[in-house]
Simulated scan of single mutants.
Amino acid sequence: MLLYNKQKKNQNAKGNRILISVTVLGSAGPIRFVAYEEDLVASVIDTALKCYAREGRLPLLGSDFNDFLLYCPMVGPEALSTWNAIGSLGARNFMLCRKPEEKKKEATNGRSSSTINGGARKGGSLKAWINKSFSLKVPSH
């Protein structure tokens, strides 16, 4: 009985666990996982990105948590500070978005061109992919 009580105390040493739901902007549905209330927002972003990649979701996001911001709709329109504890907000639903990048200017042949998000993607834009997906025709019998 004494051994059981020590194990139970060690499990609760880090604090209470909470179920978090993180919706990734542009993804089909939320990611749900358990975190401790004392976990930092940066740790929650990192865990969300790992779960997202493990599930094979699209669009591909990458794994650098510094490129993302976590928002809580109940708290306000500002992004959460990465050094705050996730449980201090009292909320369980969050939105994960990529940080907006400044327009990059490249000088080529005397003229400058601006690109957003680091340049063109390999497969084209998301809008083109959606238009192509909807234009597929299903043959009828």
Rank of each mutant, 00 (worst) to 15 (best):
F68K: 02
R32D: 04
P77V: 15
M74I: 14
W83E: 13
L61Y: 05
R57H: 07
C97I: 09
L70I: 02
M95L: 13
V44Q: 02
L80V: 11
S81C: 13
C51N: 14
K105D: 13
R54L: 11
G119R: 07
P73D: 00
R111Y: 00
F65S: 14
K122H: 05
A79C: 08
E37R: 00
G110M: 13
N66W: 08
S114V: 11
E102Q: 08
I45T: 05
S113C: 11
K99E: 05
L58P: 01
A35K: 06
A91D: 05
G110A: 13
N66Q: 10
G56L: 05
L58F: 15
S63Q: 06
E55I: 03
G87P: 06
S88G: 09
D64P: 14
A48E: 02
D67S: 12
A53L: 12
R32I: 15
N109E: 15
A120H: 03
G119S: 07
G62H: 02
S63T: 14
A48G: 02
A35F: 13
E55R: 03
L60V: 13
F94G: 04
E101P: 03
I45V: 15
N93K: 10
C51K: 14
L69F: 13
K99G: 03
G90I: 03
D64Q: 08
E78F: 08
E106L: 12
N84K: 12
G110D: 12
K105T: 05
A79N: 04
I86E: 01
S113G: 12
S88Q: 12
C97W: 06
S112H: 07
A85D: 11
A107M: 11
G62E: 00
T82C: 10
G62I: 05
I45E: 01
S43F: 03
L69T: 03
L96T: 08
